[in-house]
Design a protein around this nucleic acid. Structure first.
Lengths: 219, 219
DNA sequence: GGATGTGAATGCATTCACAGCA
DNA sequence: TGCTGTGAATGCATTCACATCC
């Protein structure tokens, strides 16, 4: 299906790929035509060797003596990540965070398309979130099938998270972006990516207090 | 200042510490008294050795033959992370995401205290976000000083992020939790932790498409 | 000269395996 | 027996350094 597979492609490299893409898109908006591995890495605080090796896992995209041409590399990275196509997603949870996610422009800019919003709270069902009427979870499976949804964002209370995850898996969703502050269990063929806002702040606090600062998590 | 420092404490271990704490608090709510390294790690998909080594970086908290006593370990981990004290934070950005963050209960549950909300958009200044009237950034420095604020959450547009970061640093803030989809530059003694929602979804997509699934980022 | 791609070397994190204690 | 704490061994990611090409 894809071109030049070699090694299994290390997981940390994939995480950085998204950040490279973000930089590249920024360069493109500023009409920059080519970029070197050093330039691409510097604002992210990655070494040039790191950038080259990461990209080389997926193919040979550079031009010796020149660097990488921005539009070309953008296309390649999008293809690798899969964002050269549009993917439908659903959102579970119409609380404060859920509504913010529904309104977030960044998702559509990356090619994701929200197709429905769900919540089991009867006081929320039927209310509008953006252009969507909140649906009960009973309608999840039908919507997932109809729109070929493979990913869901979960912005639900901790107590409901496992239950909601189970329903999503049953409905056929293959990837969960979990904002609830609990770890959830899913079958091995389902992917989970967790974003715990309080944990992020907690980790920042540790960095601040040890004042080692200016280390990991660039962005 | 703190008890048993040995090695510089590996960064990945610190990231997991927050997750251990989350599990421990959950166990405590269920009245569980003691927990083994195996039990503590299993729902997070960490090995028992990993858990023991991580905790051992900070001291000797366990009881051979028994495990760790939950309340004891909670206190220790909170002390290590610094969440045994209350920390004041400010929020910049009163858009959709900002308002969701302001309302998020998870922060106060961890001991963080939001003390002010800022935005430079004149249409937002003065409006209420929760119990806070949105202030202009001109008032940032005074508020930071008054409440001894060391950390800020940035939920601002990408174009303003660097400018806002600069102002926060000038005002004396030492840690930034950045939700804007750009990398920002700060002095070496300031910590940045970035949360890019679109990047999270992008990385989930890759996992789903390679269907290797069920790997990293537990939670 | 300037830049990529990549084997080799380094460094770091995880896992193993076991001594020691309850 | 059950479990921790920890040196030693393993495995993996990053960095180095250089052959190669524009």
């Amino acid at each position: 299906m894809d071109q030049s597979r070699q090694d299994p492609a290390p997981d940390p490299a994939v995480k950085r790929l998204s950040l490279y893409l973000r930089q590249l898109e920024s360069l493109h908006r500023r009409d920059v035509k080519t970029v070197s591995s050093r330039q691409l890495g510097e604002s992210l605080r990655f070494t040039d060797a790191q950038v080259r090796k990461d990209l080389a896992y997926f193919g040979q995209f550079g031009h010796p003596g020149i660097g990488y041409t921005v539009v070309e590399l953008i296309a390649q990275v999008r293809h690798i990540l899969g964002t050269d196509k549009v993917w439908n997603v659903v959102l579970i949870g119409a609380g404060n965070l859920g509504r913010a996610l529904a309104a977030y422009k960044g998702f559509t800019a990356k090619g994701f398309c929200l197709v429905a919003v769900f919540d089991n709270d009867v006081s929320k069902v039927g209310r509008k979130v953006g252009s969507f009427a909140v649906q009960p979870l009973a309608e999840l499976e039908a919507t997932v099938r109809k729109h070929a949804v493979r990913m869901a964002m979960m912005a639900v209370p901790a107590d409901n998270a496992q239950d909601v995850a189970d329903q999503l898996v049953t409905a056929g969703v293959r990837g969960l972006l979990n904002f609830a502050p609990v770890s959830i269990s899913v079958p091995a063929d389902v992917a989970v990516n967790a974003v715990d806002l309080a944990v992020q702040l907690e980790q920042l606090l540790f960095q601040v207090n040890t004042s080692a600062a200016s280390k990991k998590s660039p962005g």
